[in-house]
């Protein structure tokens, strides 16, 4: 079973149930706003519970662009998914806000791998349904094809 699928025409990808969005091009507020709408549509369509938005191409992130990303994060959260932003340029966060950590409720990661790691340990998001018998677990296990090695004794 393939757990990676491209969302055609958008450059977006679904990996491990996570919508991965590359933001390309420059800092045009209109384009970014439009992309935000596209992301929301894809979150709904793919039922992704996690969204990784790679903004490393955005070199000049001013407060206006930042506010658009923040609204985007809020909207994604309202759809029940957890967004993580990847690739904020060095120094940008600390120039925008006093403490690097206080980016509103925005989760950030340096690399996409770190983002996956954060999302794996994310507990504040919507909880997965509780597993009563072991069948669903087996299914989940099989779907998790990206994790190549397991501690198989």
């Amino acid at each position: 079973m393939n757990n990676r699928s491209a969302v055609s025409g958008t450059g977006m990808d679904v990996v491990e149930g996570c919508l991965v969005v590359p933001v390309v091009g420059n800092m045009d507020p209109e384009i970014i706003t439009r992309l935000g709408r596209e992301i929301l549509a894809q979150v709904k369509a793919t039922q992704a519970k996690k969204v990784i938005i790679n903004i490393s191409a955005i070199k000049i992130l001013d407060s206006y662009i930042f506010s658009i990303f923040r609204s985007m994060a809020t909207a994604i959260t309202m759809l029940g998914a957890t967004p993580v932003f990847v690739g904020i340029q060095p120094g940008v966060a600390s120039s925008l806000v006093d403490l690097d950590m206080d980016l509103g409720d925005i989760l950030t990661a340096v690399t996409t791998n770190d983002a996956f790691e954060i999302l794996r340990h994310q507990t504040t998001g919507p909880k997965p349904p509780e597993i009563v018998n072991d069948k669903p677990y087996i299914n989940n296990y099989k779907n998790d094809g990206n994790t190549k090695e397991r501690e198989n004794g």
Partner: peptide, 27 residues
């Protein structure tokens, strides 16, 4: 702004940061 900063010899990180400050003022 970026072109000018580049020619002046500001490193890339600072080019972007200063350009974003310029962007704040014009916005």
């Amino acid at each position: 702004a970026r072109q000018m900063l580049l020619q002046m010899g500001f490193d890339e990180t600072r080019q972007y940061l200063i350009a974003s400050a310029v962007s704040e003022l014009s916005t």
